[in-house]
Structure formats: C-alpha cells, structure tokens
Simulated scan of single mutants.
Amino acid sequence: MGETVVLTAYMDRFKREKYISIYEVFQKKYDDSMTLLFSDKESTVKAYQENLKDKYSTMFNYEYTDPGDVFEDIQEQAFEFYEAEKLMEYNFHFSLLSTLYQMFEQQLRKFIYEELNHRLSSVRIEGEFADFGTNMGKIKEAFKHVNYALEATIQWDTISTLADLVNTYKHGDGRSAKRLYKNHPQFFLQLSYSKERVMDSELTTNTEVVFDLEEVSFKDYSDAIIDFWKDFPEHLSGKYTFPD
C-alpha cells in the first residue's frame, strides 16, 4: 500500500450563511409568487368569463343565433381556462421544486470539489470539474473521502423524496416513480371513476396534473435543505491511501 494522507473539509460561517440564505429567499419568493398568481383562480376565471360575455354580446345576430349555444360555448371556454390555470400552477410549483433540488445538488458538488482541490490539499481530483460528481451517487462517494455519509443525515429521507419527485416530474414513469409510489402513494392522483393513476392514464407528468399539490409542500423540502446546511459539520476529515 502507498502513502496515507488526511483529507479535510471546512464549512466556514460565511459559506454556511450563503448556502442557507438562498433557500430562505427562495421560499419567500415562492410564497409571494403563488399568492400573486394563483391564490384566487375562481375570481380569475369569473373575470375571464365576463370578458367573454361582453365580447359575444355584440358578436352575433341573436335573431339567428341561439343564446343557449353561446352560453354553452362560454361555459366550455371558461372551464378550459380554469383547467389551464390549474396546470400552470402545477407546473410552476414543480418547476421551482426542480430548481430547489438542482441548486442543492450543485452546492454539494461544488463544496466537496473545492475542498478536495484547494491549494493545501494532499490530493487532487483527476479530470475536469465537468466530469466530477455528475450524479448524486458520485457526489456521495466524494464526501466519503472526508468520512461524511450524506444519507445518514436526518434530512436525507426528505431530500431523497424530493429527488424522486423531481425525476418523476421531469421524466415520467421509471425507477424514481416506482420508488416514490411505494413510499408515498398519496402523492399520486387517481381517476375519479377508478383507482388508476392519472399518470398512467395520461402518459405524462407535466402536461396534465398528476400529483396532489396539497400533499407536496414546497416548504417541507426547502426547510429540509436549510436544516441540512445548519447541521452540516464545521470540520470534516478522512484518510486516503494512495495506490502503490
């Protein structure tokens, strides 16, 4: 066996505060945006419906047009508008959840890469940053060099659920979706007339509303990430033995 060296990582107060503050601001902006855009969808739809009534009041010659047909058309358009509003709220919510997770993953990747490659480090990562920690499995392996198991933290179950949610939303059915359904079946909407999941019926996870937004709280996941960084150790160290 070759030489054994000690590897260290240091989380200073300023970096910790920077990592955390991003999510605190993100949470507030999420809340403000959701309130502004989607807090009163019913009133938005009613205003849309009234605009249609005004528009159609002078569009037709009602001596030859059945007002009942016009009313039915307005109702149908208003319903479609309401469904579109719900879909936009759904995609807005999950797009920001996706960003939340991607920010966290990149923070982890950046932190451990810099700590293993600073000028006083006894080792250097082979290859360019672009090839380093390209998935969470590889990032976990990198943290093991400083004797830190990410999956052993108390927030990791929640963060793993977030990863599965994001992957399912982005890619549809697959390993993440199966794991998510096994652990959290309440997240998945079902058809009103059967127990089939909407995701399976519609074959999509973003052009239809397939998750129950009441069950998937943005704050739960942002709080978990904030708590992760609050609990993150100031000093980490591990040993690495060079091959002969």
Rank of each mutant, 00 (worst) to 15 (best):
A130H: 15
F129Q: 06
G172A: 11
T205D: 00
K138A: 15
F14G: 05
N135G: 00
E215H: 03
A142K: 05
T207S: 12
D227F: 09
F228D: 08
K144S: 15
E42S: 02
F94T: 07
E151M: 01
L108C: 10
V5Y: 00
M11D: 00
Y82S: 14
E215G: 00
L150W: 11
E151N: 12
W156D: 14
A9G: 13
N91W: 07
I125E: 05
M88V: 08
V25W: 11
E214G: 14
H145Q: 12
V216F: 01
E50L: 10
Y19M: 11
T35C: 02
M136N: 08
T8G: 06
F38M: 01
T35H: 08
I22Y: 15
E202D: 02
E115I: 02
H145D: 06
F143R: 10
S43F: 00
L165M: 15
Q186L: 08
T4N: 07
I226Y: 13
F111D: 10
G174P: 11
A130E: 15
M136S: 03
D73M: 03
D164M: 13
P67R: 00
K140C: 11
L87C: 01
G68N: 14
D32E: 13
Y221T: 03
S98M: 10
K15C: 05
G174N: 05
K55S: 12
V6H: 08
R124M: 06
V6T: 15
I226F: 09
Y64H: 10
D54S: 15
P233E: 11
D244E: 13
M103S: 15
Y193R: 09
M11P: 01
L96V: 07
V209R: 03
W229N: 08
M199L: 12
T158E: 15
E214A: 13
S201Q: 13
V216K: 02
D173T: 08
Y48K: 09
K53D: 04
G174E: 05
L36Y: 05
T99A: 15
T44I: 03
V210Y: 05
K28H: 01
S98Q: 07
K138C: 02
T99C: 04
A152G: 03
V123R: 08
M88H: 05
N167K: 13
N183A: 12
L213H: 00
E24N: 09
S121L: 12
I74G: 03
I159Y: 11
Y82G: 06
G174Y: 07
S57K: 14
Q102H: 13
M34Q: 02
H171I: 11
G68R: 08
Q102F: 14
T161F: 12
E115N: 04
I225P: 05
